[in-house]
Simulated assay, not measured.
Amino acid sequence: MPKQYPVLATQAMRWAAFLFGLASSVCSHAEDATRAAPVPWSAPASVSVVEEEKTFENGPTKLSGTLYLASGRKPQSAIVVTHAAAFPLRDLPLYRHLKEMLPALGVAVFIYDRRGSGRSGGDLQTSDYALLADDAIAAVRMLKADVRIDPRRVGIWGLSQGGWLALLAASRSPEPAFIIAASAPLVSPDVQMMFRSINVMRVNDYPQADIEQMIATRKAVDDYMRGTGDRPTAQRLVDAAKTKPWFKLLYMGETVTDRATSRWRKEIEFDPLRTLEGVKVPALVIYGAADPVVPVADSVERLRVAHPKFDLAVIAGADHAMRLSVPPRVQMDPARMHEEAPESAEYFAILASWLTRQAIARP
């Protein structure tokens, strides 16, 4: 059985919950506050965080990111961030809690633009999970060469697809020293997207007949990609669905591409559970109990049965991004996804105390 991490079981974790919960509550004002001129009564902070632009290479591709680290403290641990599918850039609110909180615990944070996005080169459309994982490995290797970073304590934090990539990176290379995978579905991508699609239609009050049409459409496309269905049938169903108002919520293309060259075919052949067999370093897997995007119950059960070596936590009331106060319809609105930022004190407490227990965080 995976170890169920005891929540708030020690004084250190209670302090972490208070401090990180408080920090989360003022998170939306933090950026403005740091830019404002100091007030006359201000005092110097205990920890000063330095931001540095850094580039690294994976083969011929140059990628660019920002390193956040405590000034004057060395050597320190470090975390490389791997992106969720919908979040390719370094400057999203989702990552604010990492760069504002972890440097104070002696953990530097490196967030880079995913290949093909922002200031990073390369082409996402010609990549696969292995190549994206290798990008993260290259970032870990770059940080290990920094004299301010302890090369024995550099790991990866990822959310959703980024959680898969973090685990995949650790299975492909001994470079990462630890892994934190948040909201990482441990089912194949087609199963996860069917789960998400059903829920997004439910929260938007579409009738069951429309949900059944969506299921038939997704299944036809996935059957064709797996070689058990035909392309004309799949395209006919997509043509009928693309006129519906709910089609834009599904992240489906209007044209069924040739399975011989389809990126989606390559993705649905990936079973993240097999990835875990090669992970030999400490790993924390975290889920929100109220996540409408990832089948948490199935993911947890698969993890318990197949891989009992990881620390596992399911956060009460939390959604895909570890929020507590956002209604499901807003959670699943593609136009609002860039606003995601964790707010669960339990998540912050588990993150801080696990890093401390692993001797990664050193306040």
Rank of each mutant, 00 (worst) to 15 (best):
T233I: 13
A240H: 15
Q235P: 09
Q213T: 14
F270C: 07
M214W: 03
K248C: 04
V191K: 10
A184T: 14
G162A: 04
V238Y: 00
F178E: 01
D210V: 13
V200I: 10
T243C: 12
I211M: 10
A166F: 03
I215T: 07
A220Q: 02
E269M: 14
I149E: 02
S173G: 01
A181K: 04
A240K: 15
M194N: 10
P189K: 13
A166W: 02
R265N: 08
E269W: 07
R226I: 03
A240N: 09
Q208N: 15
D210S: 14
S188V: 11
E254K: 05
M214A: 06
G162H: 01
A170Q: 01
S262V: 03
P185S: 15
T233W: 11
G162F: 03
T255Y: 15
A177E: 08
L186Y: 07
R259E: 15
M201P: 00
E269Y: 10
Q235W: 08
F270P: 00
L165M: 13
V221R: 02
A181L: 06
Y224P: 00
K242H: 08
A169L: 02
A260T: 14
P151I: 05
R152K: 10
A234V: 05
D230E: 11
R218W: 03
R152C: 12
Q208G: 04
V256M: 00
T257S: 14
G163M: 11
A209H: 02
N204L: 05
D210Y: 10
V256E: 01
S262C: 02
S183Q: 11
E254G: 07
L186Q: 11
W164V: 12
I215W: 02
T228D: 13
P176W: 09
A216W: 15
S173M: 04
N204R: 12
K266G: 14
T217L: 00
F195Y: 07
S173T: 01
G155T: 02
R218D: 04
S160C: 08
R148P: 05
V147D: 11
M214R: 02
Q208Y: 01
L186M: 11
P245E: 15
D271I: 02
I180Q: 01
L186A: 03
K248S: 08
M193E: 15
K219C: 08
M201K: 03
T228E: 10
R196L: 07
D223S: 06
A234S: 07
K242G: 01
P245T: 14
D150Q: 04
V191M: 08
Q161D: 06
W164K: 14
F247W: 02
D222W: 05
W264T: 06
L250M: 10
I211V: 12
P189G: 09
R152A: 12
R265H: 06
R263S: 10
S262L: 00
I215L: 11
R231V: 05
V200T: 11
Y224T: 03
V221I: 08
V221E: 03
